[in-house]
Amino acid sequence: MKAGQGVILYGPPAAGKDTVTTALTELRPQCRQFARLKVGSGKSLGYRMGTAEQLRKLEAAGEVVYANSRYGNVYVIDAPGLDAAFMAGVPVVHLGQVDGIRALLDGYPADWAVVLLWCPREATAERSAGRGDSDTTARLAAWDATQKDLDAHPGMVWDLTVDTAASSPEEAARLIDQLLVQPGAATT
């Protein structure tokens, strides 16, 4: 059975995934950022903090849709978490890997709008420093990895592409909202 509508936001660090999600939530209150399960330490806001044992149980039950490691942590998109998110509204999933998008599209049937949020590397550096990140160097390495990821998947199809250095978060949210109202109606 297919779940309802969901949004996948893909892009490098500091491309505006959080900011655009906030603007989208203001425009369409049923949209909510999906809180991935995070196994590790550091920032907990926006995550469901979990343990290695919880991750093992999800893996054993076949309920991990996608997991990746970055910044010394494991970030998990799990089927029970997605089930709850779809029951609550329109989940907005943040990803930084094309493999994660494919895993989500193939592993959790829903009406997904797939959006590429992009910004130049310099914008990531400025935004990361401006928000006080202590790991800007790691975020720039992740930006580089995102560029390589895109280069390695030239056939990836996006429902919408937004340059967040040239578009406001509100404009990006409006375009995403158009996708939710009429799939295929948004322009890049």
Rank of each mutant, 00 (worst) to 15 (best):
V76D: 00
Q182A: 15
A173G: 10
V7S: 08
A165L: 00
V157N: 09
D163I: 01
I101M: 12
M87W: 15
M1C: 07
D18G: 09
K43I: 10
A15V: 14
R36V: 03
G81Q: 10
N68V: 02
G50S: 05
S44F: 03
A125D: 08
D149L: 01
G40R: 02
R56M: 09
L55E: 09
G130L: 04
G62W: 09
R32P: 03
D159V: 07
L160T: 02
V92A: 14
E126F: 00
R102A: 08
R102E: 14
R56H: 12
A152S: 11
P29Q: 06
A88C: 12
G89Y: 11
T137Q: 08
A138E: 15
A3I: 00
L9A: 09
E122F: 00
L104T: 08
G89I: 12
D78Y: 02
A142C: 11
Q182R: 14
D78R: 06
L140C: 14
T136N: 08
A113H: 01
G40N: 03
L175A: 13
W143I: 05
Q182S: 15
D99K: 00
T164L: 04
P29N: 11
F86R: 15
G72C: 06
L116R: 11
A85H: 13
E53N: 07
A129M: 01
A145D: 10
G62L: 12
L140W: 11
G100T: 01
G184N: 11
Q182F: 14
L45W: 04
P13H: 05
G50R: 06
N73I: 00
R139Q: 12
T164F: 02
T187G: 12
P109N: 11
L27W: 02
Y66D: 09
K38F: 02
G89C: 14
L105A: 06
L180Y: 08
Y10M: 12
R139F: 06
A84H: 11
V162K: 00
G100Y: 00
S128F: 02
V181Q: 15
